[in-house]
Structure formats: C-alpha cells, structure tokens
Amino acid sequence: MRPILVFCLPAIGDFIRCHSAIRIIAERFPGQQIDIVTSRIAAPLARLMPHVRKVWIAEKHWKPGLKERAGLAREIRKENYQAAYMLTSSTKACLVPWLAGIPERIGYPREFQFGVVNRLPAGWLKSMVAFGPRKTRLAEQVCAIARLGKRPAEDAPLPAPQLVVSAEALAAWRRRNGIDPARPVIALYTSDFANKRSWPIERFVSIARDYVARGWSVWLIGGPRERQAAAEIKAQLPDAVDFTATPDIAEAMCQIAASTVFLGVDGGLSHAAGALGGPCVLIYGSNRAYVHGPVNEQVIFLEPPISTPDWVENTRAVSEDRVREALAAAVRKHAPQFA
C-alpha cells in the first residue's frame, strides 16, 4: 500500500488538533503508513503522536519561497504517496503535493486552490459559507476533510488528539532533573500577563501558595513568552520551579506529563496538556472554549458567564474559588491519592 501524506497546520495548538484528522485517516486505512508536513516548531510533537511515521518540515508564513517548496516537492515525490490531505489553507503548501505529482489532493478550495486541490469533501461549499461557531471550529473542519465530508454515525464525538510520552522517557526525564515521582505537582501555564487571554498574576500566586502549603511542587511551564510571567511569580513564590528556559518543546511535554494536574489559559501548551491525557483545568475568556479549546474529555473549562460585562476579553470574572473547586474535582477524579 502506498503511504498517505497529511499537511498539518503550523502553530502548536492547531497542529495538535490535526491529530483528530490523522486518527480518522488511520481508522479508514488500517495498516497504511501516514506521514505529515508541518512547521519546525511543531515537528517534535509528531513523534509523540500515534499513527505518524515520518515528518517533513515546511516553515510557516511566506518563508521559504517557491524555490524551497519545489525542492521539498522533489523529495516528497520519491515517497510515491497515494493521497495528500490538505488540512491547511495555505496555497503555497497546496502547491507542494501538486508539484510532487501526488494524484489525489483532498481539501477545501480556499485561497483559489481549484485544480490544485482536486478532491473536495461532500458539502464543502456549505461548510465554507457557514456562519457561527461551526464556521470557525477548527477541529470540526480538519475532521470533515479526513472524512471526505461524511458525517459520523449517530453524531459521534470528534476523536480527541493524543500525545504519548512513554514511561521510559518520563522516568529518564525525572532522573535527569532529580524529580521525586511521589511528590504531587501542579503545573501552571500563564502565557504573558499582558496577553488578554491570561489570568491575573495575584490569582495564580494565591492558587500556587495553597498547593505549596499542602506539600505540592509548583512548576511554571512555557517558553520565551512566559519567562517574564514566571519570573514575577517566582519573585513572590521562591519555592516554584521555573521551567520556562526549557530548550525544546519535547522537554515541556515531559514536564506536563510528569505533573499531577495542569492549570492553564488559552494557548498551544494547553492543547498539549489536553492531548497528553492528564487532569487539566483551563481558563478561557478572550476566546470561547467550545470553538478554540481542546476536545479532550478530561479537560475542565472555566469561562466568564456571557452576562458578564466585557466577557469576551475578561478572564478576571473567573474567580479563585471556581478554579480551586475545579482543580480539586480534577484531582479527585484522576489522581485520588493526592486529593
């Protein structure tokens, strides 16, 4: 059987959502090899995804140019792919399977891609002109492409993205970092406090102090965007462990997988926490969780009521008490030994 190529979205959260479509394709074609194309920043996550054999790198935005895309197409041509699923709307990305001679190129004809995309999912026009949440819910769009527009039987839920850190890799990470597996951990993902998606610093600190008083470790998770926020929290809570200088995203996956419960805001690492399967509480405000949040069932979403003034931009309406209750419920259900 000839392999299948899936062009995934480049941003971390969007890329993780693409795994729902990969799961559908793997179920439709059992035993068939699946390769993916994505950005360099998202590529390390692919090795944690079931069903993915190989990753091709295509940088985001306008770089590289057409010359580099043509070079990628020449390399891809050697693999003799049967079909390409275009989960991205990028015209430059769609040119790659066309130049590579992949006979079946499946997707929505966005950005004037008629002819480049040569197999359209059923109901594609209705989907493209739809209004409301279903126009923007990315997880549904990528799954519809993978299903060729066919609805699942009895309106089955979307398959949830999965990331798997092996027990061996997790144990090795704990040994390298001197982590005691018996001590419970709350992982905090704050984003940048200047970002309207975040939650007030004093509330993160208050929650963290509660857990430190109970003997838990507090880990600050993220990358360059979260480093200033982590420094501000650590200045008030010296016991917190700052992991925001982590060199790569694969390390961050070990940090999240090793934690007992994850508390975060809207962002790529929150999608990763959901896909890793651990207990997860997410605070949403500027984006609504139904449209933009993970679809993993163990995730608890906390949002301001729609009646709250400025609810679209304001996470402050999510109280500390609601967060404490949600965290306690998540721990009772998924890690009762630490409740």
Rank of each mutant, 00 (worst) to 15 (best):
M1Q: 12
P3Y: 14
I4T: 12
D14Q: 07
C18F: 02
H19Q: 12
A26V: 04
P30C: 15
I36R: 11
V37S: 02
T38A: 06
R40G: 15
A43V: 08
L45S: 11
R53L: 08
R53K: 09
R53A: 15
I57C: 02
K60M: 14
P64K: 07
R77I: 00
R77L: 01
A83K: 09
Y85M: 10
S89M: 14
V96C: 01
I102C: 03
E104P: 00
G107M: 02
V129P: 13
E140Y: 08
E154C: 01
E154Y: 14
L158K: 04
L163W: 06
N177G: 03
G178R: 13
A182N: 13
R197L: 04
S198C: 08
R203K: 11
R214Y: 00
W216Q: 00
G223K: 01
E226K: 07
A231M: 12
E232D: 13
Q255C: 10
V281R: 09
L282E: 11
I283L: 10
S286D: 14
S286K: 07
S286G: 05
A289K: 01
G293F: 05
V295M: 05
Q298D: 04
F301K: 00
L302A: 06
N314D: 13
A317D: 08
V318Y: 15
V331S: 01
Q337K: 10
